[in-house]
């Protein structure tokens, strides 16, 4: 890793930990749990593990294309943008992720403060609660 990125990115382990078409969880003590997904196309995504609707755990949803269907009430959420798809409205904060040397890295700042990111951006985590 380049020296100026050390510290910015959080190593969450090898890419092989996630099976294609599934999500896994990363609890953040005192913060928001994160869901990390691998699509069948081989793309990785990380989002706060809460559906904008009733906060269902997206990590346990069915992954198809680059969206996930929430296990509680079948909202479809874009893994790319965190936005609810179809007729539903809402948004889950996404966490910048990169793959390097066979390992997954999350942007440390976003891991620590998805709430802050939510406040700064258009994504409002708690609106539909």
């Amino acid at each position: 890793m380049n020296s100026d990125t050390v510290g910015q990115w959080l190593d969450i382990g090898p890419v092989t930990q996630i099976k294609a078409g599934t999500g896994r969880t990363l609890p953040v003590l005192g913060g928001e749990e994160i869901a990390v997904f691998l699509t069948t196309r081989g793309e990785y995504f990380a989002l706060v593990n809460k559906c904008p609707h009733k906060h269902g755990p997206l990590s346990e949803g069915l992954v198809h294309g680059d969206s996930v269907t929430c296990p509680l009430h079948n909202w479809r959420i874009s893994l790319r943008t965190g936005e609810a798809l179809g007729d539903d409205r809402g948004c889950t904060p996404t966490i910048p992720l990169k793959v390097e040397s066979g390992r997954l890295f999350l942007l440390r700042e976003a891991v620590l403060a998805p709430r802050r990111q939510a406040e700064a951006g258009t994504c409002a985590l708690d609106t539909a609660a």
Binding site: L29, G31, R108
Partner: peptide, 19 residues
């Protein structure tokens, strides 16, 4: 076991110290 276990756990205090 991957379906049941977390990938890892993040402890923000330790992280913030490292920053």
């Amino acid at each position: 076991h991957d379906l049941h276990q977390h990938l890892a756990e993040v402890r923000p205090l330790a992280l913030e110290k490292a920053q």
